[in-house]
């Protein structure tokens, strides 16, 4: 697996294949678990309509998810998405490859333990407004566009170590804002120009993802670098 990837660009919405190249599901959302030290650790790929529908936007998605849940509430836990454990992921390339066969793999997570760690979905974090003092140099209507996940040597496996923030403009999923080499040049330049205010903010003590208030706060001492280059 590559050492570092951007979750929304490289992981979300990709096809999941099992060890026999059979199609399992899409990465409809990514489950992030809050570790003891407060860092966000990707622990699972979420699949199914309960994971997909909330991503249709704050209002439309909520309506669709509610409708889906009310249709399915006869089934216990019908509104919980299926989870594929992150440990089972072999490689993240143009598709997500698993190390195991896909048959019977898709099941909702059973949280028996009342003291289960706090889990969030990537889809809930994306789009959060970012507030920062002016000296940090972020565009004033910045939002969380993506999270950068990097492999670490400790037991967590990999961890969210940087946030991609910027004014949410069309074309963030095209990838031109992250790479300089490819294009049709006109298209690539247009997308890069639209995303010229996008920045990478490294996760640290100065950066706080406030899930209750639904915003990201960046302090004056945060390490900020341009997205490209």
């Amino acid at each position: 697996m590559r050492d570092s990837y951007d979750a929304a660009l490289h992981l979300l919405d990709r096809q999941v294949l099992d060890c026999d190249e059979r199609l399992v599901c899409k990465v409809d959302d990514v489950e992030l678990t809050v570790a003891a030290d407060g860092s966000l650790v990707p622990t699972g790929l979420l699949a199914g309509l309960p994971a997909l529908l909330p991503r249709f936007g704050p209002r439309l998605g909520a309506v669709m998810a509610r409708t889906h849940a009310s249709v399915h509430d006869v089934v216990a836990g019908g509104d919980a998405p299926d989870v594929v454990e992150m440990d089972l992921v072999d490689e993240i390339a143009s598709a997500v490859h698993l190390t195991v066969p896909g048959a019977g793999l898709l099941r909702p997570r059973e949280e028996v333990d009342a003291a289960a760690p706090e889990r969030v979905r990537l889809g809930q974090l994306l789009g959060m407004p970012v507030t920062a003092p002016p000296e940090v140099g972020l565009h004033r209507s910045s939002r969380l566009l993506d999270v950068r996940i990097t492999r670490v040597a400790d037991g967590r496996g990999s961890v969210v170590d940087a946030l991609v923030v910027g004014p949410g403009r069309p074309g963030a999923l095209l990838g031109y804002d992250r790479r300089s080499e490819s294009g049709p040049w006109l298209l690539a330049d247009a997308v890069r120009w639209l995303h010229r205010h996008a920045r990478v903010v490294e996760v640290g003590p100065e950066v706080e993802v406030d899930r209750d208030r639904g915003e990201v706060r960046v302090g004056p001492g945060a390490s900020v670098s341009p997205l490209l280059g």
């Binding site: 919405d13 096809q15 190249e21 899409k26 991503r55 249709f56 143009s94 598709a95 999923l173 990838g175």
Partner: peptide, 20 residues
């Protein structure tokens, strides 16, 4: 090369909403 057919790309590049 990648084994990905057209509608895989549509969703990956346009997101779930535009893709839908």
């Amino acid at each position: 090369v990648s084994g990905r057919a057209t509608f895989d790309l549509v969703r990956e590049r346009l997101g779930p909403r535009m893709g839908f």
